[in-house]
Every structure is written in C-alpha cells, then in structure tokens.
Design a protein around this nucleic acid. Structure first.
Lengths: 141, 141
DNA sequence: GTTGAAAAAGTCCACCC
DNA sequence: GGGTGGACTTTTTCAAC
C-alpha cells in the first residue's frame, strides 16, 4: 500500500493521541472527518496501523523486572524456531533476530528475580541454544 | 495510586483497543459507562495510563534500520549523563541502564546503514564511552 | 474529495443505593 | 465506591454528490 504525506500526518496525530476525533485530525491535516475516517480505515485494513493501544506506566504492572537476553546458538536455530520459542514463553515481550555476536535478542518481563531465573532456565533448555547473555534493565532513560 | 483488579482489566481492554467505547469496556468489566469513564480519567490523572497511541507497522516509517547498541563506559558515565546523551541524539528511540557487561543499551533507529554509522560515530565521540557493541535488528518475531 | 443528516457514543448532571 | 435516567453535545457513519 502506498502511504502519502497526509497519511503520515494522520498516523503521527494518532500516535500522539489515538482517541482524537476524526474531525479534530481532519482540521490539522486539512481534510473533512469522513475523509480522515476512510484513510484510517484503509490504513488499518492494510496493516499500516496495527492497533490502537494505550501506553501504561510500568509501575502499574505486576511484572517489574525486565531484561535483555541475547541468544547464542549453535547454527541450528532458525528464525522460525526462534519465533516458536518466543511464542511458547509468555514472559517474552519482544523477540528479534540480529546481526553481530548474538543470533537473537529477547526482551523478557518477569515478576521478580526468581521468576526471571526460572524463565532463563526455560530458555536455556531449548535445543540449539548454546548460551545466553543477559542484561537486567535498571532504568529507562 | 492504588490500581485494583477492575482497573487492571480496564487497562488491558484499552491496550487491546484504545478506541473502544466506555460502554463496551463497561460491559466486559462489569461496570456502567460513567463508572468506566471516571476510572479512566483517574488512571490518566495519576499517570498510570500515559497516553493513547497507535501501533504503526515499521515498514511505514522512513527509518527502517534498527540496532541495539551496548555502551561500555570507563566508570565516569552516570545515568544522568547517559540520559543527556540519549536526549541529544534524535535517533535514540529507547535508552536503558543495565546490569551485566554493558552499562547502557540504546535502541537506535536510522534511515540506512550510512545513517546508522554516522550515529555510531556520534555516540563514540562522547567522553566516558569506552567502546560499543552493536546488534542490527534483522527481524521482529 | 465534500456535505448533510441519522445513528451512536460521549459528557455531565442530579439523584439514588 | 457503585448505578440510573435524562438532557445535551460530539462523534461516527453512510448515502448522495
């Protein structure tokens, strides 16, 4: 799908406040409310806008420990297997394949250190995972 | 602020779809629309809900290259200095202080490899940054 | 793209448990 | 803290242009 400059502008507005009305967005981007709605519908349909969501303060969640975990694999772990692995571990918030020393990076969210440790054990149990390298997040800057 | 189970439930609904109506949320959590609104207002006021936003597909953005950059520092780089540094580099999407081998991790978004390289140079120029270790993201799983 | 009108939702009361 | 009902405003939605 092609996304023109007005679409980009609409997307930027929705990122700032996804509950803003179509009329208010239209006023900023120079369109009528129905025109904005049609574009937003098309952007959702095409997948450009994945979903409308809320940004929640981390302290609200019970799971307060986060860590980056690098996966170093012995050649046999494909991206699709890593996807399966990430999907099978609920504590994995984000999963990436990367270049460099590591093969993949998981972002883990756990309730406490014991929970994190338990998750680490589950990760290391996977065939193909040679070793891991973790960085527990101390603060978000 | 205290956040009870119903608040958690409301937050979960808003994360799934921040444009859902208060009445629809109320139906799911067992409250009336005005009651939901009151709670949402309080959650926003207290900062538990930071903002309503949209999740945008990465391919839509012009800046398509992302990388994790570990910062290894020679002891003299405090978190507050790292915050200053992150704020001064527009390409830094997220910044964390962490435990482990690295002192900090930046998530960088750049237009292309040349742009990423240029950002890396700027990071390494900072006093106190001993060396960096990068992982370019190949895919989001 | 627009306008205009109907339908739906949001907002804000007072009043109740 | 919660609900209801009503009045009013705004937003959404759709047909027609």
């Amino acid at each position: 799908m092609r996304v023109d400059e007005i679409d980009q502008h609409i997307i930027a507005e929705l990122e700032l406040d996804s509950r803003r009305s179509f009329a208010a967005i239209g006023q900023r981007v120079g369109l009528s409310a129905p025109a904005v709605k049609r574009r937003v519908d098309a952007l959702r349909e095409s997948g450009a806008i994945k979903r409308f969501t809320a940004e929640i303060d981390r302290s609200v969640r019970g799971w307060n420990i986060e860590a980056f975990v690098e996966l170093h694999c012995d050649g046999g772990l494909s991206p699709s297997m890593m996807r399966t692995m990430a999907a099978g571990i609920a504590e994995v918030t984000d999963a990436y394949t990367v270049t460099g020393e590591a093969d993949g990076i998981f972002l883990i969210r756990a309730r406490n250190t014991a929970h994190l440790e338990e998750v680490m054990v589950r990760i290391r149990e996977w065939k193909g995972v040679n070793h891991t390298r973790s960085s527990v997040i101390l603060s978000h800057l």
